[in-house]
């Protein structure tokens, strides 16, 4: 006998929809694919609600379903590296965030260039508030592997965005090297 999911389960699912969409869009690069993924995830979560252990992290459980669905059903469609269906179009022009010296559009292009296994982990731990341990469980790898992937992801982003180093040398670093060489 299947026990019907409770109304509170439904309410909690609704609360997770923004996060599920954001994660799915980050994975797939397409909001349309993201919405299909979220729909599949909600259907599966509803159908298997008895498998969710009360008191554990619902977000982590849903991410596991969404991620498995993506890798088994959607990935072969090929990821759109560019922002083809206008996920961000409304925001890109408006972003004038002084806190961040990185242009958001540049950042998104760099993020899309990361290997999937690095991008998903960076998003989970760096943006959604999941712990290393939860990310490790979702991806079915060791915690050390998660830490390693995040470090690689950061290094790759820094390289792509040309921001590596304690102070941003930018274009001057090349001429600095020339000066050093000529002084030698």
């Amino acid at each position: 006998m299947n026990e019907a999911p409770s109304s509170s389960f439904r309410e909690n699912l609704i609360k997770e929809i923004p996060n599920l969409r954001a994660f799915a869009a980050s994975l797939s690069g397409s909001m349309q694919t993201a919405d299909d993924l979220v729909q599949d995830t909600l259907l599966k979560a509803w159908g298997h609600s008895e498998k969710f252990a009360e008191g554990t992290n619902l977000r982590a459980w849903l991410f596991t379903i969404l991620r498995n669905t993506y890798y088994s059903m959607y990935r072969r469609r090929g990821r759109e590296v560019q922002d083809t269906d206008g996920i961000y179009s409304s925001k890109v022009a408006v972003q004038g965030n002084q806190e961040s010296a990185i242009d958001l559009a540049d950042f998104r292009i760099a993020l899309a260039k990361l290997p999937e296994e690095q991008r998903e982990v960076l998003i989970m731990v760096g943006a959604t508030g999941l712990s290393y341990e939860e990310a490790a469980e979702i991806c079915n790898v060791a915690v050390g592997t998660i830490k390693s992937r995040i470090n690689r992801a950061r290094n790759k982003l820094a390289e792509l965005l040309d921001i590596k180093g304690p102070s941003d040398l930018g274009p001057d670093s090349a001429s600095f090297a020339v000066v050093q060489a000529s002084n030698a």
Partner: peptide
């Protein structure tokens, strides 16, 4: 820098 950009994106 990367952390803030990631958060803005998300």
């Amino acid at each position: 820098l990367l952390g803030r950009a990631l958060q803005s994106h998300y």
